[in-house]
Deep mutational scan, measured.
Amino acid sequence: EVPFKVVAQFPYKSDYEDDLNFEKDQEIIVTSVEDAEWYFGEYQDSNGDVIEGIFPKSFVAVQG
């Protein structure tokens, strides 16, 4: 069931425009499960802007 919160276990950096880049310990709200390997989610950056994109499930852990 979406949405749910995950926390980055590792930093994720990608050159693909659709990917969500983040640092370790970033909290991310997952709004869609793309497939067995990928989530789609969002978070607010330090400027208060909402950043969204896809990212690999293996880089995050589900909270709770």
Rank of each mutant, 00 (worst) to 15 (best):
E1G: 13
E1N: 12
E1P: 11
E1F: 14
V2Y: 07
V2G: 04
V2T: 10
V2F: 08
V2C: 12
P3D: 02
P3Q: 04
P3C: 09
P3I: 04
P3A: 05
P3L: 06
P3H: 05
F4P: 00
F4S: 01
F4W: 03
K5L: 11
K5N: 06
K5P: 05
K5C: 12
V6N: 01
V6K: 00
V6L: 01
V6T: 04
V6W: 01
V7W: 09
V7Q: 04
V7T: 09
V7E: 02
V7S: 04
A8V: 02
A8T: 03
A8Y: 03
A8N: 00
A8S: 09
A8K: 00
Q9C: 14
Q9I: 15
Q9E: 06
Q9T: 12
Q9D: 04
Q9H: 09
Q9L: 15
F10A: 10
F10V: 08
F10R: 14
F10Q: 10
F10P: 00
F10E: 08
F10L: 11
F10I: 10
P11H: 08
P11A: 14
Y12E: 00
Y12A: 03
Y12N: 04
Y12I: 02
Y12C: 06
Y12M: 03
Y12K: 00
K13E: 07
K13Y: 14
K13S: 10
K13V: 11
K13H: 15
K13I: 11
K13P: 01
S14F: 02
S14Y: 01
S14C: 07
S14I: 03
S14H: 01
S14G: 08
D15K: 10
D15M: 11
D15A: 11
D15Y: 10
D15Q: 12
Y16E: 12
Y16P: 05
Y16M: 12
Y16S: 15
Y16D: 12
Y16H: 15
Y16C: 15
Y16N: 15
Y16W: 10
E17A: 13
E17Y: 10
D18T: 15
D19I: 09
D19T: 14
D19Q: 15
D19H: 15
D19F: 14
D19E: 14
D19A: 15
L20V: 00
L20H: 01
L20M: 08
L20E: 02
L20C: 05
N21F: 11
N21A: 08
N21M: 07
N21E: 08
F22C: 04
F22W: 02
F22K: 01
E23D: 11
E23I: 06
K24N: 04
K24G: 05
K24Q: 08
K24A: 09
K24L: 07
K24M: 07
K24E: 06
D25V: 01
D25I: 03
D25A: 06
D25N: 11
D25C: 15
D25L: 06
D25P: 02
D25Y: 11
Q26W: 06
Q26C: 04
Q26S: 02
E27T: 09
E27P: 05
I28R: 00
I28P: 01
I28L: 06
I28E: 00
I28S: 00
I28Y: 03
I29G: 00
I29P: 03
I29N: 07
I29K: 08
I29L: 14
I29H: 04
V30P: 01
V30T: 01
V30A: 02
V30F: 04
V30W: 02
T31Y: 06
T31E: 02
T31I: 10
T31S: 04
T31C: 08
S32Y: 09
S32H: 14
S32R: 15
S32Q: 09
S32C: 14
S32L: 08
V33Y: 08
V33G: 04
E34Y: 15
E34R: 15
E34W: 15
D35A: 08
D35I: 07
D35T: 08
D35R: 07
D35G: 14
D35Q: 07
D35S: 13
D35C: 11
D35F: 08
D35Y: 08
A36W: 08
A36S: 13
A36Y: 09
A36Q: 11
E37W: 12
W38I: 05
W38L: 09
W38A: 03
W38V: 06
W38E: 01
W38R: 10
Y39L: 05
F40R: 15
F40C: 08
G41T: 03
G41S: 02
G41C: 05
G41W: 05
E42L: 09
E42V: 09
E42D: 01
Y43W: 05
Y43R: 01
Y43A: 02
Y43V: 02
Y43P: 00
Y43L: 05
Y43K: 00
Y43F: 08
Q44G: 04
Q44F: 11
Q44I: 14
Q44P: 06
Q44C: 13
Q44S: 09
D45V: 08
D45P: 02
D45G: 07
D45C: 09
S46K: 13
S46V: 12
S46Q: 12
S46N: 09
S46T: 12
S46D: 12
S46G: 10
N47A: 08
N47S: 09
N47C: 10
N47I: 06
G48Y: 02
G48E: 03
G48W: 03
G48L: 04
G48C: 07
D49L: 13
D49P: 01
D49M: 14
D49Q: 13
D49C: 14
V50Y: 08
V50S: 06
V50M: 12
V50A: 06
V50G: 03
I51C: 12
I51Q: 13
I51Y: 13
I51M: 11
E52Y: 14
E52N: 13
G53A: 02
G53D: 02
G53R: 00
G53F: 05
G53V: 03
I54Q: 13
I54F: 15
I54W: 15
I54V: 11
F55D: 02
F55V: 00
F55K: 00
F55A: 00
P56V: 04
P56A: 01
P56F: 05
P56I: 04
P56Q: 03
K57V: 11
K57G: 07
K57E: 06
K57Q: 13
K57H: 07
S58T: 08
S58F: 09
S58A: 11
S58G: 07
S58N: 11
F59N: 06
F59G: 02
F59A: 10
F59R: 04
V60K: 00
V60T: 05
V60A: 03
V60L: 02
V60W: 03
A61H: 12
A61V: 14
A61P: 01
A61Q: 12
A61L: 11
V62H: 12
V62R: 12
V62I: 14
V62F: 13
Q63K: 13
Q63Y: 13
G64Q: 13
G64Y: 11
G64E: 09
G64V: 13
G64L: 10
G64D: 12
G64I: 12
